[in-house]
Measured scan of single mutants.
Amino acid sequence: MQRVNMIMAESPGLITICLLGYLLSAECTVFLDHENANKILNRPKRYNSGKLEEFVQGNLERECMEEKCSFEEAREVFENTERTTEFWKQYVDGDQCESNPCLNGGSCKDDINSYECWCPFGFEGKNCELDVTCNIKNGRCEQFCKNSADNKVVCSCTEGYRLAENQKSCEPAVPFPCGRVSVSQTSKLTRAETVFPDVDYVNSTEAETILDNITQSTQSFNDFTRVVGGEDAKPGQFPWQVVLNGKVDAFCGGSIVNEKWIVTAAHCVETGVKITVVAGEHNIEETEHTEQKRNVIRIIPHHNYNAAINKYNHDIALLELDEPLVLNSYVTPICIADKEYTNIFLKFGSGYVSGWGRVFHKGRSALVLQYLRVPLVDRATCLRSTKFTIYNNMFCAGFHEGGRDSCQGDSGGPHVTEVEGTSFLTGIISWGEECAMKGKYGIYTKVSRYVNWIKEKTKLT
């Protein structure tokens, strides 16, 4: 034993070699072989497995989906700052455009905790909710729209109204504003409101030439003092309507412009014939205590009207009353817009006519005020429907199939267009061939041609 100890002390290297040989010859039971080890760690190889990531292109799944990435790591994937920024906006807080917040056709661009709407022409605001041009839906104005110097929408209202708090709607500024039905039992019968379409306001006024200088022999019209197929109006439903009495009662109609003036057809009036105007009328054979009678003290036909040349060209006249009318729910003026808007309103496509005229061709006159909704007829169809001249200051309205029309005794009465609950004068009943005849239409004086003249002559002093 002493000898062994001496050998170990003198030859430590020998001992180490012996131990190493023993270990190498022993069977290893701690580690699995290569094949079995792979069965336990069965993990798919990654895209760049075996390579240094710093030297390969980034992978979106590896960089940002398996674990949260930084902007720089995302930049490695896209290799483009702009594309990385677009991805980053949604990656950080989701897609803010998912709810489609942009209105009126706006395009949404996502941002971090926010979004941006790219608005089409005519709109602005956070969600493109603000109209900035009158060309689109009248700028959301209830009545009139004008573009300011910086191309912003400025709404306005006709006389007797003021802008509401929203700067879009119009509200009454006087007790009985024009064009409004205020009798409670008839307010439910107000005709369907007309909503502004998209309009090209630059070209809204037709490029028409008034044929002022045409000389033409007097034409022989049949029954051209021209509501057939209409309905009984309720008291106060058309408070701007008046009836004219002269040699015979209810020979023509008219509309209240203001307390002192009536507008009617020029062919209705004769110099030297006494005319009485009755406002607030409903049943011409009954006294309903809503009527107001006034005498006409002055007749002003349009300066281009000449019955000797043509009885229905420039067929418009103004009547001055001896005493002002007292405005109330049964006696209310009709609204008159400017030339541009009167023309736009007419193009809405349908209007209402009213009167006490004959209820059928050569038949009896109506006792109760009649009204009828009539569609506008395109000019080409209008011209083809008659052998008589249709001037540019006239328009056609009615039904091709016949059966409904204005008729004798309705002449001078109103053709009105309702705009968001307020009625505007767009025409004056003038003439036609018979009444409600198939293929024939009622012919009306186009008020847009005469609004400046009306307003100039009827100013209240």
Rank of each mutant, 00 (worst) to 15 (best):
N5K: 15
M6K: 13
P12K: 14
I17K: 00
C18W: 05
C18T: 06
L20H: 02
L20E: 00
Y22T: 08
L23S: 01
S25F: 15
L32W: 11
D33A: 10
N36D: 09
N38D: 15
R43N: 11
P44T: 15
Y47T: 15
G50T: 15
E54I: 08
E54A: 09
E61I: 06
R62M: 11
E67D: 14
K68W: 08
F71V: 11
R75A: 08
T81I: 10
T81Q: 10
E82F: 04
R83N: 15
F87I: 10
V92R: 14
S99F: 13
P101S: 05
L103W: 04
N104V: 02
N104G: 04
G106D: 02
C108N: 00
D110K: 15
Y115N: 03
Y115G: 03
C119M: 01
G125C: 01
T133P: 15
I136Y: 12
R140K: 15
N147M: 11
N147Y: 06
S148I: 09
D150W: 06
K152P: 06
G160R: 01
G160E: 03
Y161L: 02
F176I: 09
P177E: 01
S184C: 05
T186R: 10
T186F: 11
T194I: 11
F196Q: 09
P197H: 08
V199S: 08
S204Y: 12
E208R: 12
E208Y: 14
I210G: 12
I214Q: 12
S217I: 11
T218Y: 09
D223A: 10
V228E: 09
V228I: 09
G229P: 08
F238I: 06
P239W: 01
V242D: 02
D249M: 02
F251G: 05
G253S: 08
V257F: 01
N258C: 01
E259L: 03
A265D: 01
E270P: 04
E270K: 05
K274G: 03
A279P: 00
G280W: 02
E281D: 13
H282K: 06
N283C: 05
E285Q: 09
T287Q: 10
K293Q: 11
N295D: 10
V296A: 04
H303F: 10
N304H: 09
A307F: 09
N313Y: 10
D315E: 02
I316G: 01
T332V: 14
C335L: 00
A337Q: 01
K339F: 09
K339Q: 14
Y341K: 08
Y341P: 04
Y341E: 06
F348R: 10
Y352E: 02
V353T: 11
S354F: 10
S354L: 12
G355Y: 14
W356V: 10
G357C: 11
R358Y: 05
R358F: 11
G363Y: 09
R364E: 15
R373M: 07
C382I: 03
C382M: 02
S385H: 14
T386W: 07
H400W: 10
E401Y: 08
R404Y: 08
D405V: 05
C407N: 04
C407Y: 05
D410T: 10
G413L: 07
H415S: 02
V416M: 14
E418V: 08
E420G: 15
G421D: 07
L425I: 04
T426V: 00
G427R: 00
W431L: 08
E434D: 14
K438M: 06
K438D: 15
G439Q: 12
G439R: 10
G442E: 04
Y444E: 01
T445V: 08
S448C: 03
W453P: 00
W453T: 01
T458W: 01
K459G: 14
T461A: 12
